[in-house]
Design a protein around this nucleic acid. Sequence first.
DNA 1: AATGAATGAGCCTTCATTCAT
DNA 2: GATGAATGAAGGCTCATTCAT
Lengths: 224, 224, 224, 224
Amino acid sequence: MKNGVEFHQNAETHHRLLEAAGEVFAERGFRQATVREICRRAHANVAAINYYFHDKQGLYEAVLKYALCRVRNKYPTGHGPITPANVEQELHEMIAARLHAVLDLGRTAWHSKLMSREMIEPTEALDALVKEELEPFFQRLQSCVRAVLGPGAGDEQVQRCAFSISSQWVFYHYNRQVISRLNPAMRLGPDDIDALAAHIAQFSLAALKELRITDDHKQMNPRP
Amino acid sequence: MKNGVEFHQNAETHHRLLEAAGEVFAERGFRQATVREICRRAHANVAAINYYFHDKQGLYEAVLKYALCRVRNKYPTGHGPITPANVEQELHEMIAARLHAVLDLGRTAWHSKLMSREMIEPTEALDALVKEELEPFFQRLQSCVRAVLGPGAGDEQVQRCAFSISSQWVFYHYNRQVISRLNPAMRLGPDDIDALAAHIAQFSLAALKELRITDDHKQMNPRP
Amino acid sequence: MKNGVEFHQNAETHHRLLEAAGEVFAERGFRQATVREICRRAHANVAAINYYFHDKQGLYEAVLKYALCRVRNKYPTGHGPITPANVEQELHEMIAARLHAVLDLGRTAWHSKLMSREMIEPTEALDALVKEELEPFFQRLQSCVRAVLGPGAGDEQVQRCAFSISSQWVFYHYNRQVISRLNPAMRLGPDDIDALAAHIAQFSLAALKELRITDDHKQMNPRP
Amino acid sequence: MKNGVEFHQNAETHHRLLEAAGEVFAERGFRQATVREICRRAHANVAAINYYFHDKQGLYEAVLKYALCRVRNKYPTGHGPITPANVEQELHEMIAARLHAVLDLGRTAWHSKLMSREMIEPTEALDALVKEELEPFFQRLQSCVRAVLGPGAGDEQVQRCAFSISSQWVFYHYNRQVISRLNPAMRLGPDDIDALAAHIAQFSLAALKELRITDDHKQMNPRP
DNA sequence: AATGAATGAGCCTTCATTCAT
DNA sequence: GATGAATGAAGGCTCATTCAT
């Protein structure tokens, strides 16, 4: 009972803590997030974290696992075969999905932001994140790259191209503050994000196509 | 005199504090860095920060200004005119310089890492960083982009391409931990960084060239 | 459990902190008082202050409000009408009550001492103290003065007389150390305080009566 | 050499420190005063205090001795005999002098304020202050009191009356903040202080005269 | 003679955690 | 099962003091 309002702090407290912690961890990172703010947002007692998750670290791990689960459901990695016919579409969709995931606002959009944070300031939980989410995703992205570059492309070049592509949406997440200072007129509403995704897809595909052409050209004009 | 070791703590303490603080701030960020660790590394007393920089915030601002100065000297933004003849060379050099700045190891390599951190977790000092370093740099980068895309390119497209290019080296800085897990075989010695810079330059130039061709193509085959 | 002694640190810790803080603030003033000493006397942890009162300033304000409340209950300002018949009695009681309040020893006698301190070294809380306690008290005191001086007394003279009266008991509080050096034989037990109050009342009433007479005299012998 | 201005920090530094310390100690008290502010006002190095006065306590003692000396010169305790003819004039002058000493503004008026502070928050230096200044002053004041009360007055009554008189000007010094809140219209320019001194003298003399009359009356009408 | 540089003790506050119901 | 109360460690900062010229 608080301020005359009573909350059902039974089993769903566990869920409210997960959501509140997700928001706070995504906003501030693990160390800067305080258990008090999390509990305040979740309308829970400070001791609840200890009760449900043992400690702050346990809460963080649970939140990350929860976020991973939610993201995999919301942005499932494609499973169908990649062909020259659908690779452009596939790439565009992957890019748009990830860009929206990190740029969309709203309280429920913390899942991807939290995972981005984990990549910059890793904890012990990074290994699981890499193995369960990033590795499958990059496999799929590299398949797309290989489909455009052609079978002659080396593994290293394919991976570097995949990094070059994914770096572009990650950039907008990490550097939002800088970008808004470099170009105060830039808006990032849903339509703007779509336009941005189109640019990234166009830029990346252009590079991949040109690299393939260049390679053909190289093959045709081998250096002496 | 401490632990039997005597340090010459004269006027150069100011400089030792700057260097030590730079390392710690770059590693941990402003809030997570503790003045005690900084002073320990600098072999200085905690009160020395108050003496020389008034407080932690003052120290941080001094460190950032110092880093900015050092980086501008080490990686000066080019000044000459950009022509179709030298634009590829210019882009390659910009990319290689920045990539080395964020990936090179060693105790003295914290300058760029600190500035990257400031972009992700901005403090009040970000405005100065943007105005004095990032803005001139992006102006130069956009000039390069425009030199390849041709005069018909719009401002928005030019800026987006500049972001797509710079995102690639930033990616390797932020996600080093993830990358080393995705590809444990990857090494990042000086030669590897050069090879990576070559890839990024090649990838980016390929995209720019293709985008120009595409635009020509579009002009030649306007949609109905 | 501390030093083998166990304290019941339940909800009454709040009250113990108030009492301990009252003593220490009264003895040393706000800035000189340390939270460590307060907590030590209250057998509480230093963090308890943050828990119950947010910070030292919040504790001080709570203590002052508490003291104000206690003093008003213990020495309530009279409410009945003041007549020539009861004014001497009323003045004597006011003086005796205040003198006891500032001179009585014992751990529970810090309330008035704290309020005296707030008057000498004011914080932001002084305004409330003036409005809620001092102003009503001085109104009452001035009514007494006016009852003796007669209706012809000007407001300024009345206020000055009220200050002259109240200054006398305040003096003994502030200058106790000096007084004990000027007259080492002086004792300040309860009976001595009563005698002192009798003197102050006698002295003040004598002055007021004489001033009324003097005024009459002046009126009878107007200056040319 | 500071900011292009050179100060002669030779022998007169000692004197500048005394004056600056006097101001600061009078404003803030011993503990709240910081050596840094004193040295800043005196345009001296922080180590100068240690050099000239050994430490903060030594500076304080020197300042108090200096203030005592200055006050005794400025407001010398009268030496002539006290007669019924001059006692009123003498009392008025004593009161006016002390009231001006504690209420006059200006940078050079810290001497009496500092001594008042020492009486409230005594240090080891209080004994000297009492013996050299307060004791002679109170002897003189008590002589005045006795001259009015008559030879029949007891020592205790004389001393109490002396305290009642001196308390009145001390009151205005200690409680200036409270007074300005109780009566925001009150001004304390030189003329106002004179008027106030006149009131205190009038009030006190009225009391003394009435007390003498009362005692005569008592003697004439002894209680059974 | 005089000072810029440096020190360590102590301050208030915040935090994740644990205790005792 | 769930929580209000309480804790100790650590943080940044201020201060009088002392060191090494």
